[in-house]
Amino acid sequence: MKNKVCKFISVISVAPIISLFVLTAIYLHDRSVFGGVLWYGISIVFLTILPISAYLLEHILPAYKTQGRKGERKLAFVMCIAGYVLGTIVGLLFHAPQGIQLLFVSYLVSGGLLALINSLIKFKASGHACGVAGPCVALIYFFGLKTWYVILLLIPVFWARIAMGRHTFKELISGAMIGATGTLLTILLFMHL
């Protein structure tokens, strides 16, 4: 039973699924952030659909399929970064509302920092923790400090990832700090534009 709960938490806490929850919560709370349903849909394409396609493509692309979990992790990073880069470019080129541009850039900064640290330092900072912590900071920004408690969503993620033997506490803390810092820096940047 414990393994099933851990697996469930791990599946629903991947960055693309969290982005779907976050985008929908913001859209339902304040549609003006999106300027209409079009940018809501575009955001879902680049922050959810394109990144989550990695889990389907992994079964089709032989180079990743033969690597098992390692290949799945690599492809997930590639597709997430592709979605974040393309979303940021589309948002800037087609003048997305500022809140959407902020979300795209925050995902790009956090995901880019995570990829950079994991590849250059050969440290396995948690993508799950990054993909939860950054969006939690974004939710606090959009909903106000009264929603500080969303950070508590990291507790079951930490528990599940440690229980499954996928990460150490240090890797989870590092991932969370990367996501939170990347998003906070993006918010500060946008506040000064």
Rank of each mutant, 00 (worst) to 15 (best):
P51D: 02
F21L: 14
I140S: 05
L23T: 14
C130W: 00
E58W: 03
L20E: 08
F21R: 07
P51A: 02
L108D: 06
A180M: 10
T24L: 14
Y55V: 00
M1S: 14
A115C: 13
G91M: 12
L56D: 05
C130Q: 08
L152Q: 11
I140A: 02
H167A: 09
M164H: 06
L56W: 14
V85K: 02
G165N: 12
R69T: 07
L75P: 01
I44K: 11
W148F: 05
I18F: 06
N3H: 13
L114Y: 06
R166M: 06
V85T: 04
S174A: 15
H95Q: 13
I140Q: 03
L152D: 10
Y141A: 06
I162F: 10
I187E: 11
T48W: 03
M79V: 05
A160L: 10
L28I: 13
G111V: 07
T88V: 07
L189W: 15
A180Y: 07
K122C: 09
V22L: 11
F104G: 01
I44D: 14
S19M: 11
M177D: 01
V105K: 02
N118M: 07
L172H: 04
H128S: 02
T183L: 01
V105W: 15
M79P: 09
I42W: 06
I17C: 04
L116K: 02
S119L: 12
A82F: 10
T66G: 01
L188S: 13
L103E: 06
L152I: 13
G182S: 09
V132G: 02
G131A: 06
L20W: 11
L193S: 11
K2G: 10
C136N: 03
L114C: 09
F77Q: 12
G71K: 00
I60Q: 06
T183V: 12
H59P: 00
S32R: 13
F21M: 14
F190P: 09
K124A: 01
L103F: 11
G71F: 01
L153A: 14
V132R: 00
F190R: 09
L75Q: 03
I162H: 10
G165I: 07
C6H: 09
T24I: 11
G36Q: 10
A176D: 12
Y107R: 04
C136Y: 01
I100L: 09
V105E: 14
K74I: 08
L188M: 15
F77L: 14
I155K: 08
L116D: 00
H95K: 11
G144R: 03
G91Q: 08
R161P: 03
L113P: 05
L93F: 04
I173N: 01
P135Q: 07
L145M: 13
G71Y: 02
